[in-house]
């Protein structure tokens, strides 16, 4: 028979334990305390995450506009059908995928290069200042960054135009020209989020065992061989995590671009998250935008699943190989 520590078996048999003692005994059971500690978090998660998601899912099956004055009408998959047939949604989605591929690709490459530059540079003078400055864009709010860059890009008052004029070059209307707007907002995203990939690269490099690096050096492996066989081998999980986080984040980019171009000129910088925002909070077409939000949620889940699948593919192959 289990008894609480310090309580004799005789005493336990003769007198039923008090409420406090019973509670203490209950809490000492392995599973009870952790469960109790999880309850607030679970409640928070259910109230603020699960319920709204289910609500969103339910609303996506209704035709409901906040300003129509009419009650919601159940339409089944009508909103989904409408979205899939809407050429503007497909255009916005393709523009978003292009943005994600380019932004995350450039940020990863630049982040890797800059990370390697700062690797083992503890004795480099001004390292801390340089790293602090490098990470600054990442800690700014996207709306503030968007406002700065809108002013920097301004062809009349902007710093960039003043520099171009100083160099005797013609000024460019970076955000106002349909040919340059997409590239200009992409550049701001790269400026803002490359530091994140630098951070992830430095974390990945820190995870590489020194002994293996020394062994690689003794074996006289080239830098590229060391990068591939040692550094990426150990750091790939952290790097992939960085890419995954950036991919999901870039996929829902809205505030940074909205502040610079409002999705324009025309629709050249209208990513799908901006379209969703407009339909939900400018037009108040709640059913349609809920359906689009559900689709985007599924795409984000698909991203995550794909990355995790790729990440663990090699491990699975190893496990599947006969001993």
């Amino acid at each position: 028979m289990d008894t609480a520590p310090g309580v004799s078996a005789t005493h336990a048999l003769s007198d039923p334990p008090g409420v406090g003692a019973r509670l203490a005994a209950l809490l000492q059971r392995r599973s009870v305390l952790p469960t109790l500690l999880l309850v607030p978090v679970l409640l928070f998660f259910i109230v603020w995450n699960t319920v709204p998601t289910l609500w969103l899912l339910g609303l996506s099956f209704y035709r409901f506009s906040l300003t129509s004055g009419r009650p919601p009408i159940f339409t089944g998959f009508g909103n989904f059908e409408s979205i899939l047939q809407d050429s503007e949604v497909w255009l916005a989605l393709s523009r978003t995928f292009l943005f994600v591929i380019l932004a995350v690709g450039i940020e990863t490459v630049l982040g890797l290069l800059l990370g390697l530059l700062f690797w083992n540079s503890q004795r480099l003078p001004g390292r801390r200042v340089a790293l602090t400055m490098l990470f600054t864009p990442m800690v700014l709010t996207p709306v503030a960054a968007g406002t700065f860059w809108r002013l920097i890009y301004d062809p009349t008052f902007g710093v960039l135009s003043a520099m171009l004029r100083g160099l005797g070059l013609p000024t460019v209307n970076f955000l106002g020209d349909a040919r340059t707007a997409f590239g200009s907002v992409l550049a701001v995203d790269v400026w803002m989020w490359t530091p994140f990939m630098v951070l992830m690269t430095l974390a990945a490099l820190a995870s590489v065992p020194k002994a293996e690096l020394e062994a690689a050096e003794i074996d006289r492996l080239s830098f590229l061989q060391r990068l591939r066989l040692v550094i990426l081998h150990h750091g790939k999980f952290i790097l992939m995590l960085g890419i995954l986080l950036r991919t999901i984040d870039a996929f829902k980019t809205m505030d940074l671009i909205y502040d610079m171009t409002f999705g324009g000129p025309g629709s050249t910088t209208q990513l799908v998250a901006i379209m969703l925002y407009r339909r939900a909070f400018e037009v108040f077409s709640m059913g349609w935008s809920s359906a689009l939000a559900v689709i985007l949620l599924l795409i984000s889940i698909a991203f995550t699943a794909t990355f995790i699948f790729v990440l663990h593919a090699r491990e699975r192959r190893k496990q599947d190989m006969p001993a």
Partner: peptide, 23 residues
């Protein structure tokens, strides 16, 4: 019209697309 914001959004997109050379 109650759909004012929706009507405007499409129009703003179209007019700026033409003014900026997207179309």
């Amino acid at each position: 019209d109650p759909a004012y914001a929706d009507l405007l959004s499409v129009q703003q997109e179209g007019f700026t697309a033409f003014a900026t050379g997207q179309v």
